[in-house]
Amino acid sequence: MILNAQDIHKGYETADLRTDVLRGVSLALEAGQSLALMGESGSGKSTLLHLIAGLDVPDRGEIAVDSQVMSHPNDTKRAELRRQLVGIIFQQFNLIPSLRIDSNIAFQAHLAGRYDADWCAKLATRMGLSAHLEKYPEALSGGQQQRVAIARALAAKPALILADEPTGNLDEETAQTVLTLLLEITRETNTALLMVTHSATHASALDQQLTLRSGKIA
C-alpha cells in the first residue's frame, strides 16, 4: 500500500475559537491507483493533502506513505520523506521563478538524489516543453507552467503524487489536456495519485472518488 491514512484529526485555534478541520478521516491508496478528493470549500481537502505531504502534522492519527510515517513530529525527517516519496502539484503552479524551466523540472529529482537526465528529457517532451527549457517561468502560459509543475513532480519518480486542484487556474481545454497527461504518466509509471478537485467531470476520470464534508468522509 502506497498511502495509508488512519483516523486523521486536525484543528486550528485562533484567539477565542477552535476550528476542527478534519475529524477522523481514513483513506488508503495502492500503487498506480488514482483517487479524486472532492468537497466544498473549507471541507478540509487541502488540509488533508498537506498532512499527507508532511507539510504539517495531524493532531491525531497516523499517515504512512510507502510504509514510511509521514506524520513524524521531526521536521527534518518529514522534509527528507517528502523529498523522496512525494511529488506535489499546486493550483498556482508555484514554480521557482529564479530558475530556468529545465532546472525547475530537475530540482526535486536532484534533491532526492534521483536525477535522471533522460527521464527529465522524456518528461519534457511528453509535456510539450522541449522548446521552452531555457526560458524562465514568467515567460510561459498558465497551462505550460502547470505542465512544468507536473514534470517536476514526476521527475523524482515519487511513490505518490499529490495534486491540489491542478487545473483550477486553467481554462477547460487546457485543463483537460493537463489532466490527461497527468493520468497517463502516473499510470505508465505505476505512481499513485491523490487529486483534490472541485470538478466532478475531472474526478470521474480517476479510479476512485471520495467526498469530504465537515471534516469527515461523506
Binding site: D75, T76, A79, R82, R83
Partner: peptide, 16 residues
C-alpha cells in the same frame, strides 16, 4: 514567502 514555500514543500527544511 511565495518563493520560499515551494522550496520547503519540495523537501528543504525551514532550518535549512
Amino acid at each position: 514567502l511565495p518563493q520560499l514555500a515551494p522550496i520547503w514543500a519540495l523537501g528543504v527544511t525551514r532550518a535549512q
